[in-house]
């Protein structure tokens, strides 16, 4: 950013713009992920939303997390979803029109949740911790992984292992026993 521009565009404004952009990305992505009936749009929406969230993470002070977010969600989850979509070929399956009341019901429930939690958020006097450390480095994270969250670290690897074996078994084998007519 040049100093000239800095005269006209204050850093706060840029930050605001960036923030609004990020939030916009998040919400727009979320809506795209949820609303269209075409599943591929949804995946794109998810990816967009993830980008937004990653941006928000940056705003919240953790670039590392933003990176991991993009890595895991877009790099792993979204890809996996795309594969699943391709394998299950849902594109050519005709989706019957939605049952309207269900839509309203979903909306109502979400609205109720929104309202009640908004009030909760507003009514709670969130208190700031008395002493606050400002150590945002990744090193600190690494330390924690090897000390206080050591068990957690081991555990999640185990969970992932189980998930992978399980996914292999389920995806590779289940349902293989009985194929509908006409399938090779």
């Amino acid at each position: 950013m040049t100093p000239v521009m800095g005269q006209y565009i204050r850093p706060e404004a840029v930050a605001w713009a960036a923030f609004i952009l990020v939030v916009g990305l998040t919400f727009a992505g979320a809506l795209i992920a949820v609303l269209p009936r075409n599943i591929i749009y949804n995946v794109f929406g998810l990816a967009t939303c993830i980008l937004g969230v990653a941006g928000l993470f940056i705003f919240l002070g953790s670039e590392f997390l933003a990176m991991m977010e993009i890595l895991i969600y877009i790099g792993a989850i979204s890809i996996a979803i795309v594969f699943a979509i391709m394998l299950s070929q849902p594109m050519h399956v005709r989706i019957p029109p939605a049952w309207r009341p269900k839509l309203y019901l979903s909306f109502a429930v979400s609205a109720v949740v929104f309202v009640s939690f908004s009030v909760i958020v507003l009514r709670t006097p969130w208190a700031v911790a008395l002493e606050r450390s400002q150590d945002w480095t990744v090193k600190r994270l690494g330390e924690l992984f090897l000390t206080r969250y050591e068990l957690l670290f081991e555990l999640i690897s185990l969970a992932l292992l189980v998930a992978i074996i399980g996914a292999i078994i389920t995806a590779a084998a289940l349902g293989g026993g009985r194929k509908p007519e006409g399938e090779p």
């Binding site: 979803i81 299950s88 992932l160 292999i168 389920t170 995806a171």
Partner: peptide, 19 residues
């Protein structure tokens, strides 16, 4: 995130099985 990924893996494989 990690758990979400694992969950997604299992969920997708189950969805495929169901399919």
């Amino acid at each position: 995130m990690g758990i979400a990924a694992a969950e997604a893996a299992i969920a997708l494989s189950l969805i495929l099985a169901l399919f």
